[in-house]
Simulated assay, not measured.
Amino acid sequence: MSDILPEPFVIDRGSMRIAGDRWVAQASSKAPIMLLHGGGQTRHSWDRSASALAARGRDVYTIDLRGHGDSSWAADGDYGIDAFVGDLRHIIETIGRAPVLIGASLGGITSLCTAGEHSGTAAALVMVDVVVHVEPEGIDRIKAFMTDHIDGFATLDEVADAVTDYNPGRERPRNLDGLKKNVRLHDDGRWYWHWDPQFIMASGNEPRRHTDPERLGAAARQIDIPTLIVRGGQSDVVSEAGVAKMRDLVPHADVADVSAAGHMVAGDDNQVFAAAIDDFLDKYEF
């Protein structure tokens, strides 16, 4: 891991405040790396990956998407894909360099649309358990996990139980303090996920409105930068058939299978995930 400590930063986009962390490598000439989390997560889901990439001499950014973590909640309840893409483009313009976009789930969808619809925005694209044709049952299970706990939790133990129920293959944490990066204690004494409930409740089809195959397919066909698709071998969101269709859309894409991981690839098997990212970066010498 890197000895570089992350520096918090804030980027304003009108009334929207986007929060993030930056690991600054000294005199780095390589493309920066930007890590975008999935729906219902925060930038801290990438902390281990960001630190490891910084140790390789990279400038690394982790971002809280709108409505998540320390970023603003949308006053108008706008959590459509256009809003996420607009935020990401503004962040990249502020940084002033085209990054390697690494996105998981919602972060990967946002990265795909940004890179495909706005040429020159990104130097490369890594989609973590993201394809155009996802499995509806897996998306519905994510939605159920998020909506089942809108009313919060009485204790951190209940939070840990909920995470374990969703992802039984991952070891239940012994120290629950790490969960405080994803939940907040409110005045009523209950713990709530650190994201705006409107993100999931604004539409009866959430989060499926982010997985429109027509739009995602059109974006994928325009991808002309180095691309890596990382699939969790145990994922119920991305199937082998989904990956095969993705390769038809982006023929030049590399594919890495993290066999022991589910949808939360980096958290389930960070070592294998990190090796896949390293191989990709080395191959194209970013």
Score class of each variant (00 low, 15 high):
S51P: 00
I81W: 00
L65T: 06
E135M: 08
W73P: 01
H68E: 07
G103V: 08
R58L: 03
D78A: 14
R89T: 15
T110D: 07
A104W: 04
L125F: 08
L35K: 11
S49C: 14
I92D: 12
E117G: 15
L53Q: 07
V131D: 06
A55S: 15
V131K: 02
I139Y: 00
L36D: 06
H44V: 06
E137H: 10
V134L: 11
A115M: 07
V130S: 03
S49K: 00
H133S: 13
A55Q: 10
V131W: 00
V126M: 01
D59N: 15
D64I: 07
R56S: 12
G107H: 02
L35H: 10
F84Q: 12
C113K: 10
V60A: 07
E117Q: 15
I109C: 05
G39L: 10
D76L: 08
A104P: 00
T114D: 02
D129C: 05
S119R: 14
S72N: 11
V131P: 01
G120H: 11
Y79K: 04
G77L: 01
S72R: 09
G40F: 00
G67M: 04
G96N: 13
T114A: 14
V85A: 12
L53T: 07
G86A: 13
R97G: 06
I81A: 09
T42P: 00
V132S: 06
E135T: 12
V126E: 03
D76Q: 14
V128N: 14
S49A: 15
L106S: 07
T110C: 07
G77A: 07
R48V: 09
R58I: 00
R97W: 01
L35T: 13
A124K: 02
V134M: 13
G120R: 13
H44C: 00
D70T: 04
V132F: 02
H37C: 01
G96C: 13
G69L: 02
V85P: 03
A122L: 06
L112V: 09
L65S: 11
H133Y: 12
E93I: 08
A98Y: 05
H133L: 05
P99Q: 13
R58V: 00
G40D: 05
S51Y: 00
I139A: 12
E93R: 15
A115E: 07
D70M: 05
A104H: 13
A52R: 14
I95K: 13
D59T: 15
P136H: 09
Y79H: 03
F84W: 10
V85I: 11
P99Y: 08
A83Y: 04
G80N: 12
G116F: 06
T62F: 00
G80I: 04
